[in-house]
């Protein structure tokens, strides 16, 4: 094994995706490495292909999609490397939820609408951890408690539509973390949420990462969120990865034009408020 693999836990090499033969590619030759415990933000406008990368990472793309390149999950010492694109379906099923978990933009839509929260959680815990029926329920309530839900018993008995957006996103996070994954893919986890709740979820993800050495692949269009969670930012523009830089070098002058544009767009709103506050005595 090379020196690099000691640190990197997830490698995407020259990934190209098109949804059907003959269509324009959604991703072109994207290469990306995530080290253990690292948080990477994938930033770009909608339609640039960033969600496709997330779906490809757990092989949830439609069967008709044409994929080239490779995605390898190296993981830590306890598990073998997995070739995500080349393995058979059963091997991938063992990876999903257990080693790579995903949180989606629409939290309520990503939960089963006809199942109580605690039952959904218990189900996942039984599958990924092999918990027994009786311990699964207790573990479900514990995991709700861990994602900062003040009243786990009441929330556990609720159906998804009875929850607020922030609460549902916490539940979705609890579901994702149930399998103690090595990599969490968060696809726009806060863009459907209001300011206060957004801040709460950002803080929760940050706290979870601190406790569990989780690697994070954050997908967002908002550079402000990327800055608040990631330590490296990858910018995608027009289906290509155009920039990849550590967070502290974002302000450096020689950045790609797309990066500059995204930074400026994020600062546009803030700047108006700041100038307003500075102008008034």
């Amino acid at each position: 094994m090379s020196e690099r693999s000691a640190h990197s836990m997830f490698e995407v090499t020259d990934l190209s995706v098109r949804y059907a033969r003959g269509e324009a590619p959604v991703l072109r030759d994207v290469s990306l490495t995530i080290d253990r415990g690292e948080s990477i933000a994938l930033v770009g406008d909608s339609g640039c292909g960033k969600s496709t990368l997330a779906l490809a990472a757990i092989r949830l793309l439609p069967k008709t999609a044409c994929i080239r390149g490779s995605i390898v999950l190296r993981g830590d010492h306890r598990a073998m490397p997995v070739d995500i694109l080349g393995s058979d379906e059963r091997a991938i099923e063992r990876v999903r939820g257990r080693r790579i978990a995903m949180v989606f933009q629409d939290p309520i839509g990503s939960l089963n609408p006809v199942m109580r929260i605690e039952k959904q959680l218990a189900e996942v815990l039984r599958v990924v951890r092999g918990a027994s029926r009786s311990t699964a329920r207790r573990a479900a309530l514990e995991s709700l408690d861990r994602v900062g839900i003040a009243d786990p018993i009441r929330v556990g008995r609720a159906y998804p539509h009875e929850l607020s957006g922030g609460m549902a996103q916490r539940v979705a996070l609890a579901l994702a973390l149930a399998g103690e994954p090595e990599l969490l893919i968060a696809d726009e986890p806060t863009s459907a949420l209001d300011g206060i709740v957004q801040a709460q979820i950002v803080e929760l993800i940050r706290e979870t990462q601190r406790q569990t050495n989780l690697s994070l692949l954050l997908i967002t269009h908002d550079m402000a969120i990327a800055k608040s969670l990631a330590n490296r930012v990858c910018v995608i523009e027009a289906n290509r990865l155009v920039d990849d830089c550590p967070i502290d070098q974002l302000t450096a002058s020689n950045r790609h034009a797309a990066t500059e544009r995204l930074i400026q767009a994020a600062e546009f709103k803030r700047s108006a408020a700041i100038t307003l506050m500075e102008r008034t005595p």
């Binding site: 406008d45 909608s46 269009h221 550079m223 544009r261 400026q264 767009a265 994020a266 546009f268």
Partner: peptide
């Protein structure tokens, strides 16, 4: 519902 850049 827009991207940050379109928002601006």
């Amino acid at each position: 519902a827009l991207d940050v850049s379109a928002q601006a």
